[in-house]
Nucleic acid binder design. Sequence first.
RNA 1: GCCCCUGUCGUCUAGCCAGGCCUAGGACAUCGCCCUUUCAAGGCGGCAACACGGGUUCGAAUCCCGUCGGGGGCGCCA
Length: 497
Amino acid sequence: MRQVRVRFAPSPTGYLHVGNARTALFNWLFARQKRGAFILRVEDTDVERSRQEYYLRLMDDLRWLGLDWDEGPDIGGDYGPYRQSERLEIYRLYTQQLLEAGRAYYCFCSPEELEQARREALAAGRMPIYSGKCRHLSPEEAAARVARGEKAAVRLKTPDKGEVIFNDLVHGELHFQLEVIGDPILVRSNGLPAYNYAVVIDDHLMEITHVIRGEDHISNTPRQILTYQALGWEPPQFAHLSMVMGEDNTRLSKRHGATSVDQFAQEGILPEALFNYLAFLGWSPPEGQEVLSREELVELFNLSRVSRSAAIFDYQKLYWLNRQHLKRLTPGEKVTRVLPFLQKAGFLPEKLTREHHLWLEKAVEALIEGVNKLNELPEKFNLFFEFDLSKMEESARRILQAESARTVLEALAEELANRSAVSFEEFSDIAREVRQKTGVKGKELFHPIRVALTGQTSGLELDKFIPLIEEGARLTWRQPLLSARERIVRTLQWLTQ
RNA sequence: GCCCCUGUCGUCUAGCCAGGCCUAGGACAUCGCCCUUUCAAGGCGGCAACACGGGUUCGAAUCCCGUCGGGGGCGCCA
């Protein structure tokens, strides 16, 4: 059997959208599973909108997601060039061939003329198809007009009757009546190929075996098949993926929230989590597993299990998957992923020592549970680095102002006074002594201690928190990390002022 | 308007092709309980769907027809 070759062919006219990323991902999964080739091709014939910046970002985003390509504009390959703007000579060659064989013809109709015909057809309730006006011009006359410098597009001459049938790998057999197709533009009057023409040439020359793309291309497919036929080529297999929608069931767009891959990266979604989520948008494995690595997905993926209906992008489920993937990381890996976010928040010192790293591992381990996205973590780190009682919430304030709270904290301060740093075990002993000395116990005892230590009514368990501030206080940070004793002392000062 | 695709819990979906195994399974979300001196997380449990109408059949989520809903396309954009 022939080697599987698939491609992702984005146009560099914007950031990589999750919908496109999912298309790329399905292609990649298919290629990797079949031990085939995944090709990146850039469709940049829309000169108006294509930009170098987008092209570079596109590749960054794909790499970040973990999608690597075997051939592409940056690394080359045996079927290049991989940028359509560099393939114009190739298209021209085939256009010539088509023209000479009488399978295509020059069209001199003006855009205005066409637009008017289109409007009329729409008003009359017909499909707006090209009339075929220039179709019957004699080749000699057409050639003469072109030679004279008249602007002309090139159209494919399609049969008037019959139907185009193809077997879509996800939708099954699809039929299209030729009457509703019309003669598509192959080459624009500015000499650049139209999308529907360039894809056919490129896919064939690059020996693409499976075209896996969005459902919005379904109705383009018969036109493309007709082009293959005119050229005498065998079309590839097609698989059309359903659309990705927002919560309101309209096409996913910016107003639904983050939609570009780099936005998710910046928010702290793990690439493997986005990858996992995207794979489940319109596909599911036979056994119903949910949290899967790239490798597992490659193994399980199957085009025949791809769903035919549109899927709504569910941020909640993405977050849940992100938490699951977060959980699977080792403590060291967690720190590595979190570091950029802490860096940005300005917590980290110039130089991170081995001690800092070890402390961070424990801190991240303690705080990361329940975190949806990594960008939520710096805020949680405030628990260590921020201790400002004036910003306390009303409920916390009330706990500290209770009669017994002051008794407890004073006794605690006394116990802590002649020690440098305490472990949680030592702290528990101290708390026990405080209880005996003051007679305060249970909630009355622990609540004020928590607030005095953190300034908050909720947060980490004290048995995790206390060792962390005690150890952390010995390290150097951008801003001081207060020890338990310092926190108690400050709280008492605040109470007495 | 015309053409095409599509329709199972709020959401992603399993089941459909090979009709009985489905009083329709899982997951997210939601609600409740447990755990926890806090908040989460975690554990356990609950609520919740075959769009509708006709057929075919002993029997239909599964097959057929229609209706309605949703989406896409109808470019000298990709």
